[in-house]
Nucleic acid binder design. Structure first.
Lengths: 133, 133
DNA sequence: TTATTTACCTATTGACATAGTAGGTTAGTA
DNA sequence: TACTAACCTACTATGTCAATAGGTAAATAA
Protein backbone atom coordinates (compact mmCIF):
# COMPACT_ATOMS: atom_id res chain seq x y z
CA UNK A 1 0.00 0.00 0.00
CA UNK A 2 1.27 3.43 -0.99
CA UNK A 3 0.81 5.72 2.01
CA UNK A 4 -0.16 9.39 2.10
CA UNK A 5 3.51 10.37 2.27
CA UNK A 6 4.21 9.03 -1.18
CA UNK A 7 0.89 10.03 -2.67
CA UNK A 8 1.00 13.59 -1.35
CA UNK A 9 4.61 13.97 -2.46
CA UNK A 10 3.63 13.12 -6.03
CA UNK A 11 0.70 15.54 -5.89
CA UNK A 12 2.98 18.32 -4.64
CA UNK A 13 5.39 17.66 -7.49
CA UNK A 14 2.57 17.68 -10.04
CA UNK A 15 1.20 20.90 -8.55
CA UNK A 16 4.61 22.52 -8.87
CA UNK A 17 4.97 21.30 -12.43
CA UNK A 18 1.61 22.82 -13.33
CA UNK A 19 1.78 26.07 -11.39
CA UNK A 20 5.47 26.85 -11.15
CA UNK A 21 6.04 28.22 -14.63
CA UNK A 22 9.24 30.17 -15.31
CA UNK A 23 11.00 29.09 -12.17
CA UNK A 24 8.69 30.94 -9.81
CA UNK A 25 8.57 29.90 -6.16
CA UNK A 26 5.18 28.58 -5.08
CA UNK A 27 4.21 28.98 -1.40
CA UNK A 28 3.29 25.73 0.33
CA UNK A 29 0.13 27.40 1.57
CA UNK A 30 -1.14 27.66 -2.02
CA UNK A 31 -0.34 24.02 -2.75
CA UNK A 32 -2.02 22.89 0.46
CA UNK A 33 -5.17 24.82 -0.42
CA UNK A 34 -5.32 23.62 -4.02
CA UNK A 35 -4.73 20.03 -3.00
CA UNK A 36 -6.89 20.07 0.11
CA UNK A 37 -4.10 18.77 2.35
CA UNK A 38 -2.96 20.14 5.73
CA UNK A 39 -0.07 22.54 5.21
CA UNK A 40 1.57 21.37 8.44
CA UNK A 41 1.62 17.80 7.24
CA UNK A 42 2.93 18.79 3.83
CA UNK A 43 5.87 20.54 5.52
CA UNK A 44 7.15 17.17 6.71
CA UNK A 45 6.85 15.70 3.24
CA UNK A 46 8.34 18.63 1.39
CA UNK A 47 11.29 18.68 3.78
CA UNK A 48 12.33 15.24 2.52
CA UNK A 49 11.90 16.29 -1.09
CA UNK A 50 14.23 19.23 -0.45
CA UNK A 51 16.83 17.09 1.37
CA UNK A 52 16.88 14.70 -1.58
CA UNK A 53 17.46 17.55 -4.00
CA UNK A 54 14.13 17.11 -5.76
CA UNK A 55 12.89 20.57 -4.78
CA UNK A 56 14.46 23.81 -3.67
CA UNK A 57 12.88 26.09 -1.07
CA UNK A 58 13.20 29.85 -0.54
CA UNK A 59 12.33 31.58 2.72
CA UNK A 60 10.72 34.93 3.25
CA UNK A 61 8.20 36.95 1.29
CA UNK A 62 7.95 35.72 -2.30
CA UNK A 63 9.42 32.42 -1.22
CA UNK A 64 8.10 28.91 -1.61
CA UNK A 65 9.22 25.82 -3.47
CA UNK A 66 10.09 24.95 -7.05
CA UNK A 67 11.25 21.93 -9.02
CA UNK A 68 14.98 21.47 -9.63
CA UNK A 69 14.59 19.57 -12.89
CA UNK A 70 12.17 19.42 -15.78
CA UNK A 71 9.07 17.27 -15.11
CA UNK A 72 10.20 14.65 -17.65
CA UNK A 73 13.40 14.20 -15.65
CA UNK A 74 11.65 12.82 -12.55
CA UNK A 75 10.38 9.26 -12.41
CA UNK A 76 7.44 8.35 -10.19
CA UNK A 77 9.50 5.45 -8.85
CA UNK A 78 12.24 7.61 -7.40
CA UNK A 79 9.70 9.86 -5.67
CA UNK A 80 7.88 6.91 -4.12
CA UNK A 81 11.08 5.19 -3.01
CA UNK A 82 12.33 8.40 -1.45
CA UNK A 83 9.17 8.82 0.60
CA UNK A 84 8.30 5.23 1.41
CA UNK A 85 11.56 3.35 1.29
CA UNK A 86 12.30 0.46 -1.06
CA UNK A 87 9.51 -0.49 -3.43
CA UNK A 88 9.93 -4.17 -2.48
CA UNK A 89 7.03 -6.60 -2.22
CA UNK A 90 8.68 -8.66 0.53
CA UNK A 91 11.39 -7.98 3.11
CA UNK A 92 13.76 -10.58 1.63
CA UNK A 93 14.10 -8.51 -1.54
CA UNK A 94 15.24 -5.27 0.08
CA UNK A 95 18.78 -4.41 -0.99
CA UNK A 96 21.16 -4.62 1.92
CA UNK A 97 18.77 -6.57 4.12
CA UNK A 98 19.96 -9.73 5.79
CA UNK A 99 19.62 -12.41 3.11
CA UNK A 100 17.02 -15.07 3.91
CA UNK A 101 18.70 -18.37 4.82
CA UNK A 102 15.91 -20.24 3.04
CA UNK A 103 16.31 -18.34 -0.22
CA UNK A 104 17.78 -21.28 -2.15
CA UNK A 105 14.94 -23.61 -1.24
CA UNK A 106 12.15 -21.02 -1.12
CA UNK A 107 9.38 -21.87 -3.55
CA UNK A 108 7.78 -18.43 -3.35
CA UNK A 109 10.87 -16.29 -3.93
CA UNK A 110 10.62 -16.40 -7.76
CA UNK A 111 7.04 -15.16 -7.47
CA UNK A 112 8.06 -12.15 -5.42
CA UNK A 113 11.02 -11.45 -7.68
CA UNK A 114 8.82 -11.43 -10.75
CA UNK A 115 6.30 -9.10 -9.08
CA UNK A 116 9.14 -6.89 -7.93
CA UNK A 117 10.44 -6.47 -11.47
CA UNK A 118 6.94 -5.68 -12.68
CA UNK A 119 6.43 -3.02 -10.02
CA UNK A 120 9.86 -1.50 -10.46
CA UNK A 121 9.51 -1.30 -14.24
CA UNK A 122 6.05 0.22 -13.93
CA UNK A 123 6.93 3.03 -11.55
CA UNK A 124 10.35 3.84 -13.02
CA UNK A 125 8.75 3.90 -16.45
CA UNK A 126 6.34 6.65 -15.41
CA UNK A 127 7.56 10.21 -15.38
CA UNK A 128 6.20 13.26 -13.61
CA UNK A 129 5.43 14.75 -17.02
CA UNK A 130 3.13 11.81 -17.74
CA UNK A 131 0.90 12.88 -14.85
CA UNK A 132 0.62 16.57 -15.65
CA UNK A 133 -2.51 17.66 -17.46
CA UNK B 1 4.33 -5.04 1.20
CA UNK B 2 3.09 -8.59 1.51
CA UNK B 3 3.20 -9.54 5.21
CA UNK B 4 4.08 -12.86 6.80
CA UNK B 5 0.39 -13.74 7.01
CA UNK B 6 0.04 -13.88 3.25
CA UNK B 7 3.46 -15.32 2.61
CA UNK B 8 3.15 -18.07 5.20
CA UNK B 9 -0.35 -18.93 3.98
CA UNK B 10 0.99 -19.53 0.49
CA UNK B 11 3.83 -21.64 1.85
CA UNK B 12 1.38 -23.75 3.87
CA UNK B 13 -0.73 -24.32 0.77
CA UNK B 14 2.32 -25.29 -1.29
CA UNK B 15 3.46 -27.63 1.48
CA UNK B 16 0.05 -29.32 1.50
CA UNK B 17 0.06 -29.60 -2.28
CA UNK B 18 3.46 -31.29 -2.18
CA UNK B 19 3.04 -33.51 0.86
CA UNK B 20 -0.66 -34.21 1.05
CA UNK B 21 -0.94 -36.81 -1.65
CA UNK B 22 -4.09 -38.92 -1.84
CA UNK B 23 -6.14 -36.75 0.44
CA UNK B 24 -4.10 -37.48 3.57
CA UNK B 25 -4.31 -35.09 6.50
CA UNK B 26 -1.00 -33.40 7.29
CA UNK B 27 -0.40 -32.29 10.90
CA UNK B 28 0.43 -28.62 11.30
CA UNK B 29 3.43 -29.61 13.38
CA UNK B 30 5.03 -31.24 10.33
CA UNK B 31 4.37 -28.20 8.15
CA UNK B 32 5.78 -25.87 10.81
CA UNK B 33 8.95 -27.94 11.05
CA UNK B 34 9.45 -28.25 7.31
CA UNK B 35 8.85 -24.56 6.77
CA UNK B 36 10.72 -23.33 9.84
CA UNK B 37 7.76 -21.29 11.09
CA UNK B 38 6.29 -21.23 14.62
CA UNK B 39 3.40 -23.69 14.83
CA UNK B 40 1.49 -21.38 17.15
CA UNK B 41 1.63 -18.57 14.63
CA UNK B 42 0.62 -20.86 11.79
CA UNK B 43 -2.49 -21.83 13.75
CA UNK B 44 -3.83 -18.31 13.36
CA UNK B 45 -3.16 -18.32 9.64
CA UNK B 46 -4.54 -21.78 8.99
CA UNK B 47 -7.69 -20.93 10.91
CA UNK B 48 -8.53 -18.27 8.31
CA UNK B 49 -7.78 -20.66 5.47
CA UNK B 50 -10.25 -23.14 6.97
CA UNK B 51 -12.94 -20.48 7.55
CA UNK B 52 -12.65 -19.46 3.92
CA UNK B 53 -13.07 -23.04 2.78
CA UNK B 54 -9.58 -23.28 1.31
CA UNK B 55 -8.52 -26.06 3.68
CA UNK B 56 -10.27 -28.61 5.82
CA UNK B 57 -8.99 -29.67 9.24
CA UNK B 58 -9.47 -32.92 11.17
CA UNK B 59 -8.91 -33.20 14.93
CA UNK B 60 -7.43 -36.09 16.87
CA UNK B 61 -4.75 -38.63 16.13
CA UNK B 62 -4.15 -38.94 12.40
CA UNK B 63 -5.68 -35.50 11.93
CA UNK B 64 -4.26 -32.38 10.34
CA UNK B 65 -5.12 -30.30 7.29
CA UNK B 66 -5.62 -30.92 3.60
CA UNK B 67 -6.53 -28.95 0.50
CA UNK B 68 -10.16 -28.82 -0.61
CA UNK B 69 -9.42 -28.33 -4.29
CA UNK B 70 -6.74 -29.30 -6.76
CA UNK B 71 -3.66 -27.01 -6.69
CA UNK B 72 -4.48 -25.62 -10.14
CA UNK B 73 -7.86 -24.47 -8.81
CA UNK B 74 -6.37 -21.95 -6.35
CA UNK B 75 -5.05 -18.60 -7.50
CA UNK B 76 -2.33 -16.83 -5.55
CA UNK B 77 -4.43 -13.68 -5.66
CA UNK B 78 -7.33 -15.15 -3.74
CA UNK B 79 -5.02 -16.50 -1.05
CA UNK B 80 -3.29 -13.14 -0.61
CA UNK B 81 -6.54 -11.18 -0.56
CA UNK B 82 -8.01 -13.54 2.00
CA UNK B 83 -5.06 -13.07 4.34
CA UNK B 84 -4.20 -9.43 3.75
CA UNK B 85 -7.39 -7.83 2.60
CA UNK B 86 -7.83 -6.11 -0.75
CA UNK B 87 -4.79 -6.07 -3.02
CA UNK B 88 -5.26 -2.35 -3.60
CA UNK B 89 -2.36 0.05 -4.03
CA UNK B 90 -4.23 2.96 -2.47
CA UNK B 91 -7.17 3.29 -0.10
CA UNK B 92 -9.34 5.06 -2.71
CA UNK B 93 -9.42 1.90 -4.81
CA UNK B 94 -10.76 -0.47 -2.19
CA UNK B 95 -14.20 -1.76 -3.19
CA UNK B 96 -16.84 -0.48 -0.84
CA UNK B 97 -14.65 2.22 0.67
CA UNK B 98 -15.94 5.76 0.85
CA UNK B 99 -15.29 7.19 -2.61
CA UNK B 100 -12.74 10.01 -2.67
CA UNK B 101 -14.44 13.37 -3.27
CA UNK B 102 -11.46 14.46 -5.37
CA UNK B 103 -11.59 11.43 -7.66
CA UNK B 104 -12.81 13.34 -10.70
CA UNK B 105 -10.03 15.91 -10.52
CA UNK B 106 -7.30 13.63 -9.14
CA UNK B 107 -4.30 13.51 -11.43
CA UNK B 108 -2.79 10.47 -9.76
CA UNK B 109 -5.84 8.22 -9.74
CA UNK B 110 -5.25 6.82 -13.26
CA UNK B 111 -1.72 5.87 -12.18
CA UNK B 112 -2.99 3.87 -9.20
CA UNK B 113 -5.74 2.30 -11.30
CA UNK B 114 -3.25 1.13 -13.89
CA UNK B 115 -0.96 -0.32 -11.23
CA UNK B 116 -3.93 -1.97 -9.57
CA UNK B 117 -4.91 -3.75 -12.78
CA UNK B 118 -1.32 -4.89 -13.26
CA UNK B 119 -1.12 -6.30 -9.73
CA UNK B 120 -4.51 -7.93 -9.88
CA UNK B 121 -3.81 -9.58 -13.22
CA UNK B 122 -0.43 -10.79 -12.02
CA UNK B 123 -1.58 -12.46 -8.82
CA UNK B 124 -4.85 -13.84 -10.18
CA UNK B 125 -2.94 -15.22 -13.14
CA UNK B 126 -0.70 -17.31 -10.89
CA UNK B 127 -2.00 -20.61 -9.57
CA UNK B 128 -0.87 -22.69 -6.64
CA UNK B 129 0.18 -25.41 -9.10
CA UNK B 130 2.61 -22.92 -10.70
CA UNK B 131 4.53 -22.74 -7.42
CA UNK B 132 4.79 -26.44 -6.67
CA UNK B 133 8.05 -28.13 -7.59
C1' DT C 1 -11.41 -46.74 28.99
C1' DT C 2 -7.43 -44.22 29.06
C1' DA C 3 -3.65 -41.86 27.11
C1' DT C 4 -2.21 -39.43 23.30
C1' DT C 5 -2.54 -36.54 19.58
C1' DT C 6 -4.22 -32.83 17.13
C1' DA C 7 -7.17 -29.12 16.03
C1' DC C 8 -9.33 -25.14 17.88
C1' DC C 9 -10.14 -20.93 20.98
C1' DT C 10 -9.29 -16.41 23.61
C1' DA C 11 -6.34 -13.13 25.27
C1' DT C 12 -2.10 -10.46 25.58
C1' DT C 13 2.30 -8.34 24.29
C1' DG C 14 6.11 -5.39 22.33
C1' DA C 15 7.57 -3.05 18.53
C1' DC C 16 6.76 -0.18 14.90
C1' DA C 17 4.44 2.75 11.32
C1' DT C 18 0.96 6.04 9.96
C1' DA C 19 -1.13 10.38 9.85
C1' DG C 20 -1.21 13.82 11.63
C1' DT C 21 -1.04 18.25 15.43
C1' DA C 22 1.32 21.97 18.14
C1' DG C 23 4.22 25.58 18.78
C1' DG C 24 8.14 27.84 17.99
C1' DT C 25 12.58 29.90 15.30
C1' DT C 26 15.11 31.54 11.32
C1' DA C 27 15.54 33.74 6.97
C1' DG C 28 14.41 36.87 3.53
C1' DT C 29 11.42 40.66 1.38
C1' DA C 30 8.50 45.07 0.90
C1' DT D 1 10.11 47.38 10.96
C1' DA D 2 6.36 44.45 9.70
C1' DC D 3 5.29 40.58 7.31
C1' DT D 4 5.70 36.22 5.11
C1' DA D 5 7.19 31.81 4.49
C1' DA D 6 10.40 28.17 5.18
C1' DC D 7 12.37 25.39 8.67
C1' DC D 8 12.78 22.80 13.21
C1' DT D 9 11.67 19.78 17.35
C1' DA D 10 8.57 17.43 19.80
C1' DC D 11 4.36 15.01 20.73
C1' DT D 12 0.15 11.90 20.22
C1' DA D 13 -3.56 8.85 18.93
C1' DT D 14 -4.55 4.94 16.36
C1' DG D 15 -3.69 0.87 14.20
C1' DT D 16 -1.09 -3.15 12.35
C1' DC D 17 2.39 -6.79 12.61
C1' DA D 18 4.35 -10.79 14.39
C1' DA D 19 4.12 -13.32 17.48
C1' DT D 20 3.50 -15.77 22.44
C1' DA D 21 0.81 -17.94 26.22
C1' DG D 22 -2.24 -21.01 28.04
C1' DG D 23 -5.87 -23.32 27.67
C1' DT D 24 -10.34 -26.61 25.70
C1' DA D 25 -12.52 -29.88 22.57
C1' DA D 26 -12.42 -33.71 19.47
C1' DA D 27 -10.86 -37.93 17.61
C1' DT D 28 -8.05 -42.07 17.54
C1' DA D 29 -4.87 -45.92 19.02
C1' DA D 30 -3.47 -48.81 22.82
Amino acid sequence: MISTRGRYAIRVMIDLAENGSEGAYIPLKDIAERQGISKKYLEIIVKDLVSAGFLVGASGKGGGYKLCRKPEEYTVGEIIELMEGPLAAVACLIDGAAPCPRASECETLPLWEEYDRLTHDFFYGKRLSDLVR
